[in-house]
Structure formats: C-alpha cells, structure tokens
C-alpha cells in the first residue's frame, strides 16, 4: 500500500509539472508558472492526503538525484559561452564578486535583525543561487539542504515579480547589467525572464547565475565562518 502511494506521488509530481508547463506556455500568467504552481499544488496534496514526507520522497528521490547530473551539465553552456566570458570578463567578475557577498550577507543580517534562528540564517545564506549549487553549499555549511531549496524557490518567485519593477526603477544603460540583475538575484527564474528581454540579456543572466553558483560553493567555508 505504501509503495503504491509512493509511486502515486511520483506520477502526481510528473503530471502536475507537465500540465503546469503546458498551461504556462499557453497562457503566460505568472500564477501558472511551474516554479510557483507545482510546489504549491504538490505540497497541498501531501498535506490534504496526510502523506508522510518519507513516503512522498521514496520514489521522487530519483528526481532529486538528477540534480547531480544537472550540475555537471552546466559545463556545456559555460563552454559554449566562453567567448562572452572572455569579452566581458571584467564586468562579469565584478558582478559575481559583488552579488554573492551582498546576497549572502544581506540574507543573514536581515534574518538576524528579524529574530530568525541560526538554523534559518544558515539556510537562507545561499538562497540566491541555482538549486544544485545552493543545496551543495547548504550541506557544507551545516544547513538542511531541503530548507534551502524552499528558500531558493521563494527567491525565484520574488525575482520574477520584482525583476520588471527594478528594471524600470534603476537607470541601467547596458543589456549586460539587465541580464546580471536577473541572473544574480533570481537564478533560473531570472534567467528565463532575461531570455524574454533578449538573447544577450539571457546569456549574461545564465552566466552570472552559473559563475555565482560556483563562486558561492567555493566560498562555503567563508560563509560557515560568517554565520
């Protein structure tokens, strides 16, 4: 019975993901965005059905497992965009080197100011980078990776909603800056938005996201010391 339920959870996750993706492509409404809709619906189903998390995770852990190979796969776009990296090495590295400390320190300081526990401060620290990098950083600084994954998703939704507003408010001249804004603050969700603006914005956003993720993983000992 439990095995059947676990398998049902996997099927439910796959079907909801597929439906949300299709619906979002057709309508473009922000609330049908798979990033927001699928976790909410799956969490809703698990809560309503009183399904224990270990039952839910029994078969769906194969999906989580694929985050490992997905991290390896980042090598391909980085290699393909090596010309852009070379051309804009200065602005890209400035962007990454500034974005990452600002993201980590502001998350930790704000969490501390709002009286959140040390565990939550740690889990919030790597929230602005792509999920596999964020979860890897979380486990090396002693935060629960699944909690970090939740905060990464909330960050993505926040970036989707705030991105356009901030692009309007800030006096930015270059496409480079617009792409970096989205990629550094909102990882994959920001990169998707940047691709809607233009190809150059999209490439810069994905580069900022990937390089920022790698930089944060390597900075993990520093972050652990800081929190």
């Amino acid at each position: 019975m439990e095995n059947l339920l676990a398998f049902g959870c996997l099927v439910l996750t796959l079907v909801l993901y597929w439906l949300a993706k299709k619906l979002y492509r057709r309508t473009g409404n922000w609330w049908t965005a798979p990033l927001l809709a699928v976790p909410l619906l799956v969490i809703g189903a698990v809560v309503v059905g009183h399904i224990p998390y270990h039952t839910y995770f029994q078969d769906t852990h194969w999906l989580s497992w694929l985050l490992g190979p997905a991290t390896v796969a980042f090598a391909i776009p980085i290699y393909e965009q090596r010309q852009v990296i070379r051309k804009h090495a200065l602005s890209l590295s400035c962007g990454v080197l500034v974005a990452m400390p600002v993201a980590v320190m502001s998350s930790v300081w704000l969490a501390r100011a709002f009286g959140l526990s040390e565990l939550l401060q740690k889990s919030l620290a790597p929230r602005s980078i792509s999920t596999p990098f964020a979860m890897a950083t979380a486990s090396s600084i002693g935060a629960p990776p699944d909690l970090t994954a939740v905060f990464v998703v909330i960050t993505g939704v926040a970036g989707m909603l705030l991105g356009e507003l901030m692009l309007m408010l800030l006096p930015l001249r270059s496409r480079l800056a617009k792409g970096a804004l989205l990629g550094a603050a909102a990882h994959g969700a920001g990169t998707a938005k940047a691709n809607e603006l233009g190809a150059e914005e999209g490439v810069v956003a994905s580069l900022t996201m990937m390089l920022g993720g790698i930089a944060t993983v390597f900075a993990a000992p520093l972050i652990a010391w800081f929190v």
Binding site: L92, V98, A99, S106, R127, I154, T155, L162, L172, L176
Partner: peptide, 26 residues
Amino acid sequence: RIVLVILLSTVLVMTVTSLVVDAGYK
C-alpha cells in the same frame, strides 16, 4: 519574516549587482 527577508535581500542584490555591472561595462 522569511518572505520579507527574501524580498528585501532580492531588491538589494538586484540594485547593487546591476549598478556595478553597468559601471564595469562603461
């Protein structure tokens, strides 16, 4: 409070990063 932390920090990251990259580009 967590959502508030994320929103504020996201605005901060967006502002600082894009202004620095714009300056770097110039």
